[in-house]
Design a binder for these strands. Structure first.
Length: 738
DNA sequence: CAGCTAACAGTGAGA
DNA sequence: CTGTTAGCTG
């Protein structure tokens, strides 16, 4: 592709970013502003116009999906082969580096990657082996702490040096976990990055090599980088590389995962001479939707500042529907989808509709309503292919073929299919391993030699060892797919899951699908840089295992189908839909109770989440809330979310359920002469105010605690001096202010 | 070892 | 209320 093609069709700001002069750049890219396009064209521009060698470019993303998309688009843009160009996720690239330099990193050549489930199992064992009470020292919390520490780049000793508020025992758990991982030759996700960082710091020659190699580093979704990832970028960049990052501080919704939006503000300081380019023209949504998004996010402090605009016209207003309860909300939403779809507005296209909610639990009612109407739908979330139990069982055997020391895999293999090695035998084996500082596998071998196992367990253990030997031998002769097939038969997994498989679970099918996936699997091509030693050969099995760990597969089991899309706001980030239904906008739900209690920072992240939700919509945005909702089994009265109130009323189109007279809550503005400007959800309150004293004919005097609902439905909670808390229907309670 | 029952928790999820 | 898990029983 030639240069003019590359730059044509770009707006001035996009062009400025794509064809930027040498230097560091922070591209502040609003939702729908053509961010991915700018990033990929920047890379193409560097190669085609600036004659930068592809192998001098490093592009980092957070998800495999983003990396794959970028790779594809670059292939289309470049005229020359892009071999040597490193595009990948932080973890994928760290894995690549560690495989190349496993010796320097102090790792076994066939080290395996632990996913979250493996990590938790590992920690359960560590906590148990330390003789700690798993109630008080919950492995889950240990996992959370350890990951948070690693994300901050902290090893156990460094934590002790600094000040932290955790009991020292957690650090001991961290230390014991590290020992266990080292003994098993396994690394968790955070470890990939941390170890990578350390190996570069400890080997100046290696660091210099990569700093020399990469003259250009590009980062996508920069607002999501955690401390370690940012440090990694700075380290690799060194003094020489030009760094080009793209992000949106208003879409930072992962602080709970360690992401630090502050990196955006720090960028100009840490990378001297860095320039900021703002992309504010939006190519996705109508004007009203953008106006709503801008108004909402303006309530956050400390933003870098950015306002989306479009030349595409205003579009319709934002629909707001206040349902009587959660079921009505679901019914309404589904009916609206059906109507829109039938009316041809959406071309009968169901996948043009997305129902977005704050938490996964909310999907149920919508699923039920969709099912009732016979509309196909797809729910994002849940287990992914490589996370399914039967797949993880199979992967455990494969991991053992590569690395017998992999204790997590071995425990899993011992458990399924059952081998007569019960909890008692396992316990003695674990003890043997612990006291001897051995891996579990070594402990089994030793126990067999010294007749440390009883009859049935002995038979099972011998069979397992033999089976692994046979499979390992087969691995030398067979193709990956056949090899997995062989393993599934020899391990008894096939028979086991054919027997255990219940209708609809399709576990046996999944195992067959694993074989298919392996047959289709093409290992990534090792990029050989001219004048450098070829990278060490990895077996296809090893590469497949790394792939399975790093790319857990699609979230939904059913493939492509025209269906309504259901997902959380978090997983909607980066997507867009013509028709978006933002549901459950209620205080306590969105923003969550927790966020409201935690204060401004947490609330602002919720607001950014709402901003992400609004900006997913291309044509029509419908927001809904229910006045009453079943939560944890009981009906609770809900107030509309403050976020609805933050959208100017003139952008809203109030929808009222038919056949039921309902108060008109947004018309207070104007008709209610002299009243203070009303926000959505507020209503006149007969001189009563929250926190004030009130009097009831029967209950006497009390304190007005809270109010929910609207107009005729307005209910108040009063703490009476004599009878305690009561909920009252304001219209009929006859309360008077004292 | 598998299947059942009781107890419990209940925000989000990338690699 | 519901889905998950730990622990017990057959």
């Amino acid at each position: 592709m030639d240069l003019t093609d590359l730059l044509s069709g770009l707006n001035p700001h996009q062009r400025e970013a794509v064809a930027a002069k040498p230097g560091h750049y922070l591209v502040l890219a609003g939702a729908g502003s053509g961010k991915t396009s700018v990033l990929t064209k920047r890379i193409a521009y560097l190669v085609e116009a600036e004659n930068i060698w592809p192998h001098a470019i490093l592009a980092v993303t957070f998800t495999n999906k983003a990396a794959a998309e970028m790779r594809l688009r670059i292939e289309q843009l470049l005229t020359q082969p892009h071999r040597g160009l490193w595009i990948g996720t932080f973890h994928g690239l760290a894995n690549k580096l560690l495989r190349l330099h496993f010796r320097e990193a102090g790792l076994n050549e066939s080290f395996q990657i632990l996913d979250q489930d493996d990590q938790l199992r590992m920690l359960k064992r560590v906590v148990a082996e330390m003789g700690l009470d798993a109630e008080r020292f919950a492995p889950k919390q240990a996992m959370w702490l350890i990951n948070a520490w690693k994300d901050e780049g902290l090893r156990p000793d460094a934590i002790q040096a600094g000040n932290h508020r955790q009991e020292p025992i957690w650090i001991d758990i961290y230390r014991a976990y590290e020992t266990a991982c080292r003994r098993s030759s396994v690394v968790d996700f955070a470890e990939l990055l941390l170890r990578c960082q350390e190996v570069l710091l400890e080997h100046p020659a290696l660091l210099a090599h990569y700093q020399n190699r990469f003259s250009h580093i590009l980062v996508d979704e920069f607002q999501d980088t955690n401390t370690l990832q940012y440090a990694w970028i700075r380290l690799l960049a060194g003094e020489r590389a030009q760094v080009f990052v793209v992000g949106d501080d208003d879409q930072s919704i992962y602080s709970w995962r360690g992401a630090r939006v502050e990196h955006m503000q720090r960028f100009e300081r840490d990378f001297p001479g860095a320039k900021t380019i703002k992309l504010e023209q939006n190519y996705r949504s109508t004007g009203n939707i953008l106006a709503a998004a801008n108004a909402l996010i303006a309530n956050n402090d400390g933003r870098m500042g950015k306002a989306l605009w479009t030349d595409a016209g205003e579009g319709g207003k934002i629909n707001v529907f206040g349902a009587f309860d959660d079921q009505e909300e679901a019914r309404f939403t589904v009916e609206k989808i059906q109507k829109t779809s039938d009316a041809g507005e959406a071309n009968g296209d169901l996948k043009a509709h997305a129902i977005l909610y704050r938490s996964n639990a909310q999907s149920r009612l919508f699923e039920e309503a969709l099912m009732q109407k016979g509309l196909p739908y797809r729910v994002y979330g849940g287990l992914r292919f490589f996370e399914r139990a039967e797949i993880k069982d199979a992967l455990s055997y494969l991991r053992l073929m590569q690395n017998r020391e992999d204790d997590v895999a071995l425990e899993r293999a011992i458990a399924t299919p059952p081998k007569g090695i019960g909890e008692k035998s396992l316990e003695s084996l674990r003890n043997r391993a612990k006291s001897g500082g051995l891996s579990l596998f070594a402990a089994i071998v030793e126990a067999l030699g010294s007749s440390g196992l009883s009859g049935r367990a002995k038979t099972g253990a011998t069979a397992l060892i033999l089976m692994l030997e046979e499979c390992t031998a087969a691995a030398r002769e067979q193709e990956l797919g056949d090899l997995i097939d062989t393993m599934l038969i020899k391990s008894g997994l096939n028979t086991h899951y054919q027997r255990v498989d219940r209708a609809e679970e399709g576990r046996a099918d999944n195992l067959a699908e694993l074989v298919n996936t392996a047959r289709r699997f093409t290992p990534p091509i090792a990029d050989q840089v001219p004048g450098e030693a070829p990278p060490a050969e990895q077996t296809p099995l090893q590469q497949f295992l790394a792939y399975a760990a790093l790319e857990a597969g699609d979230h939904q089991s059913k493939p492509w189908e025209d269906s309504v899309q259901l997902m959380t706001l978090h997983s909607a980030k980066g997507l867009e839909f013509p028709f978006v239904y933002l549901v459950g906008l209620e205080e306590g739900l969105f923003p969550t109770q927790r966020a409201s209690e935690d204060g401004t920072t947490a609330l602002e992240e919720e607001r950014r989440l709402a901003y992400v939700g609004i900006t997913r919509a291309r044509q029509v945005l419908t927001i809904s809330h229910a006045e009453s909702r079943r939560r944890h089994g009981q009906y609770q009265l809900q107030q509309p979310s403050r976020f609805i109130g933050e959208i100017p009323v003139n952008l809203l189109n109030q929808i009222r359920p038919k056949a039921r007279a309902r108060p008109n809550y947004s018309s207070g503005y104007g008709s209610n002469y002299g009243a203070p400007r009303q926000r959505y959800g507020e209503s006149a309150n007969m001189g009563l105010k929250l926190g004030g004293r009130v009097k009831h004919q029967m209950f006497g005097e009390g304190l007005l605690i809270s109010a929910e609902g609207e107009g005729a439905y307005l209910r108040v909670e009063v703490k009476f001096d004599s009878v305690g808390m009561k909920w009252l229907q304001l219209a009929s309670a006859g309360l008077v202010a004292v």
